[in-house]
Design a protein around this nucleic acid. Sequence first.
DNA 1: TACCAGGTCCTCG
DNA 2: CGAGGACATGGT
Length: 238
Amino acid sequence: MDKIDLYEVYRLLFKKFGSQGWWPTTAPGEAKPKHRGKRPDTEKEKLEIVIGAILTQNTSWKNVERAIENLNRNKLMDIDALNLVDIKHLAQVIKPAGYYNQKAERIKNFIRFLLEEFDGSFSKLFSMNLTDLRNKLLSLKGIGKETADSIILYAALKPIFVVDAYTKRIAERIGLGKKDYDELQKIFMESLPEDQKLFAEYHALLVRLGKEYCKKNNPRCEDCPLKNLCSYAKANLS
DNA sequence: TACCAGGTCCTCG
DNA sequence: CGAGGACATGGT
């Protein structure tokens, strides 16, 4: 069994798809988030990434977009507004994202935490070192590993590799075997230089591949950019 | 019609 | 620990 070169995987994906511009955020004056390829400078952009990371838990980004659009139009993409809004109303606004009661609770939890412990400031929260920040986020109800790591990578801009359902499926198919979150994260991070931009692009590319080629059902192995090194594609195409 | 989508928490053995 | 269920909308 030949070993998979995860840097080579990255090169193939980037050659095929190019830069993905993650994480999508809403431009000033607009309501709909877009992949803009822009670092989140403002508190509002960082907030939007956190909210998006919670909303997208086991949910398609399309539905999350609608929920974010609703939040923007209702002027709720704001720390103080979210702190004050009635949780039932918040739940209705984010309804398209599904699990809206749980997610409203999780958003409220996070906002309360940020206000009480960090004066509502992402700059203060993100000034923690990566390990402490991660443990802090993981201690919050509704923030698990993937959500925490997405926040750290895409909002705090610190180098950690995000593992999601696509990552797990793609990793298993190309021949890394069935691995859990921590194992996969370790494998990716030990195979790559510690680089926030690289990790950010890589994860985005895996999502792109998972959506368009390495789908759960009917994967398109024929023209997959990884077909030459993927054990699943080799078996599937033989 | 089922199944899927950028998970997490809780409970039970 | 690890499996299994709950949470819910919108697309195919």
